[in-house]
Simulated scan of single mutants.
Amino acid sequence: MSSALRPCLWYDGDAEEAARLYAGAIPGSRLLSLNRAPHDWPAGTKGDVITVDMEVAGQRVMLLNGGDAFRPSPATSLMIVTGDQEETDRCWDALLADGGSAMACGWCVDRFGHAWQVTPRRLLDLLADEKQAANAFAAMNEMVKIDIAALDRACAP
């Protein structure tokens, strides 16, 4: 059997709601299964959704209703690499809906407390280009949501 890395994100009873948000907001995402507790447990009762298996942008992820013992932190984030500004805007807006908050440089926190980096592929390409990296980095540091056209203007000869 080969090993696999599968992130597990912690929620306080709202993993199913989060999964439905991510499935609708992020291309290549879908809910795979809801797994219910076979009996009462410290964070819930028999029949409650205990885990949700899903794919987020094609990556298998488990969402765990673990209770209120832990809170997510931006020290761990999920990066969504978007193809264009329309996709960037759509993901950004959905993750901020109903109580999310914007951070700097394309980072945001969803209403469940999980941090996301909504990052256009164009930004990654510019940052990897020795001739463009300094200008792209400076422009990115002035942004909240990443603006591809502004990056291109900042990197224009």
Rank of each mutant, 00 (worst) to 15 (best):
Phe70Glu: 12
Met79Pro: 06
Ala15Cys: 03
Val118Thr: 05
Ala134Pro: 08
Ile26Asn: 07
Val109Gly: 05
Lys145Thr: 06
Leu123Trp: 02
Ala19Pro: 01
Ala150Glu: 08
Phe112Leu: 04
Thr45Ile: 01
Leu21Lys: 04
Cys8Val: 09
Asp110Asn: 11
Thr82Asn: 08
Arg111Ile: 02
Leu5Pro: 01
Ile26Gln: 03
Asp12Val: 10
Trp92Asp: 00
Leu32Gln: 14
Ser73Pro: 10
Ser2Asp: 07
Gly47Ser: 03
Met103Cys: 04
Asn35Pro: 01
Pro38Ser: 03
Cys91Pro: 11
Arg121Asp: 14
Asn135Lys: 15
Asp125Lys: 05
Ala23Phe: 05
Gly13Tyr: 12
Arg36Thr: 03
Ala154Met: 04
Ser73Ile: 03
Asp147Phe: 00
Gly99Val: 12
Ser33Asn: 10
Arg122Val: 13
Leu124Tyr: 00
Asn35Tyr: 05
Tyr11Thr: 04
Gln117Ala: 13
Ala15Asp: 00
Ile148Arg: 01
Ser29Asn: 02
Asp14Ser: 14
Asn141Gln: 14
Leu95Trp: 04
Glu87Val: 04
Val49Lys: 02
Ala18Tyr: 02
Arg30Ala: 14
Ala19Glu: 04
Arg121Tyr: 12
Ser29Trp: 03
Gly24Gln: 06
Leu9Tyr: 06
Asn65Pro: 08
Gly67Glu: 08
Arg122Thr: 13
Ser73Tyr: 00
Leu5Asp: 00
Leu151Met: 08
Asn35Ala: 11
Leu64Tyr: 15
Trp107Asn: 15
Glu55Pro: 00
Ala156Ile: 11
His39Pro: 01
Ala102Glu: 07
Cys105Leu: 04
Gly58Ile: 01
Ser101Thr: 14
Gln132Cys: 01
Ala37Arg: 09
Asp152Cys: 00
Glu87Tyr: 15
Ala104Thr: 07
Ala25Arg: 07
Asp98Ala: 13
Asp68Gly: 15
Ala18Leu: 06
Thr51Pro: 07
Leu64Glu: 09
Asn35Glu: 08
Gly44Trp: 05
Trp116Lys: 12
Glu86Asp: 15
Ala19Arg: 01
Lys145Trp: 00
Cys105Arg: 06
Glu130Lys: 08
Thr51Val: 15
Asn141Leu: 05
Glu86Arg: 14
Leu151Gln: 10
Gln117Ile: 11
Thr119Trp: 14
Met140Tyr: 04
Leu34Gln: 07
Asp68Ser: 15
Ala156Pro: 12
Leu78Asn: 06
Cys108Ile: 11
Ser77Val: 06
Leu78Arg: 09
Gly67Thr: 06
Asp125Trp: 06
Ala138Gly: 07
Pro27Met: 00
Trp10Met: 11
Gly58Cys: 04
Glu55Gly: 05
Glu17Met: 01
Thr51Ile: 15
Pro38His: 03
Ala75Phe: 01
Lys46His: 12
Val144Cys: 05
Ala37Glu: 08
Gln132Lys: 14
Met143Thr: 03
Cys155Ile: 13
Leu123Arg: 09
Pro72Glu: 13
Arg36His: 10
Gln132Trp: 05
Leu31Pro: 02
Val56Pro: 03
Ala97Tyr: 08
Ala75Leu: 10
Thr51Ser: 09
Glu142Ala: 13
Leu32Pro: 01
Val56Gln: 01
Met79Gly: 06
Cys155Thr: 15
Ala25Gly: 06
Asn35Trp: 02
Val144Gln: 13
